[in-house]
Amino acid sequence: MYREFYGLTEKPFSKTPDPRYLFLSRGHREALARLQYAVEERELALLTGDIGCGKTTISRALMDAVGNDGCFCFIVNPRLSAVEFLRTVARSLGIAEPAAAKDELLRQLTEAVYRLEGEKRCPVIIIDEAQLIPDQEVFDEIRLLTNFQLDDRNLMSVILMGQPELRQILSEPAHEALRQRIAMHYHLQPLSLEETLEYVDFRVEVAGGPQGLFSPDAIRRIYELSGGVPRKINILATNALLVGFGKDSAWIDASLVEELRDEASLY
């Protein structure tokens, strides 16, 4: 369809976190650098941002940056009981059959963490959508994971990622002990207009398309409708390409994007 029409070899605004399409704005670069530091120091970190701002993309970039020095556990749905949470972590650390009893499960986790330390690898537990954690007991287990230590260093890094309300949740008195252990905080902002211009051009070029496929006015309108949120930019840009293809338009201008104004409120 529109790919051949616009000289694209693939979809430039796919929702999948393909590392080839990783665009690091100033905010994304800083967030990634801070998370890398948290892993190097084996600290507890907090990354927040609105829906679609790129938190998950940054976590994938972090995994690529750390490479084999890390043993990553991604928890993408944290609606778990405390034992379910620990069993999920255990599987990611190489425990084939996590115990059902908590005391035995903790023994298995301890052995796995020290085994990884002997291999010079850092366990990195990344909990996405952490604002959905259902109860205090799970937060307590997250805090207790940071107790894996030697005399001179921690043995594990834990990264909490979530929407802005996660900060409000953690500000509650019940989470004081966990909050005090968070060594790195960062809130990811949407892209600026200039960054949106660079972002759209970058993704088109990676997909094999021509420079200037989207006019500056078109990208400005995309920015206004999306608020600079990458996921919304992707949806608007894809739909603009479909509209342009339907109209046999050689490039995407602001008038084509304007046709998506009513749809944009649904994203």
Rank of each mutant, 00 (worst) to 15 (best):
R3C: 07
E4H: 09
G7A: 07
T9E: 15
K11C: 02
P17Q: 02
D18R: 05
Y21S: 04
Y21C: 03
L22G: 00
R29V: 04
E30N: 14
A31C: 06
L32C: 05
R34I: 14
R34Q: 12
L35S: 07
A38Q: 06
E41G: 02
E43A: 12
L46K: 06
L46I: 08
I51V: 15
T57F: 15
T57D: 06
A61T: 03
G67S: 07
I75N: 04
L86E: 12
I95L: 11
I95K: 08
E97S: 14
A101P: 06
D103R: 14
E104P: 02
L105S: 12
E111P: 10
V113K: 10
L116W: 13
G118T: 10
I127V: 15
E129Q: 10
Q131L: 04
I133W: 01
P134N: 10
D135G: 11
F139C: 01
L145P: 02
T146S: 13
N147T: 03
N147I: 01
L150A: 11
D152N: 14
M156F: 00
M161Q: 09
M161E: 11
G162Y: 04
E165P: 10
R167T: 09
Q168H: 13
L170K: 07
A177K: 14
A177P: 14
Q180L: 09
H185T: 10
Y186R: 03
L188I: 05
Q189N: 13
P190V: 06
S192V: 08
F202G: 05
E205V: 12
A207V: 08
G209A: 03
P210Y: 03
I222S: 05
I222F: 03
Y223F: 13
E224Y: 04
L225G: 01
P230K: 03
I233W: 01
A240W: 00
A240T: 00
L241T: 07
L241R: 02
D253K: 01
E259R: 10
R261V: 09
D262S: 11
E263G: 13
A264L: 04
A264N: 05
S265N: 02
L266C: 00
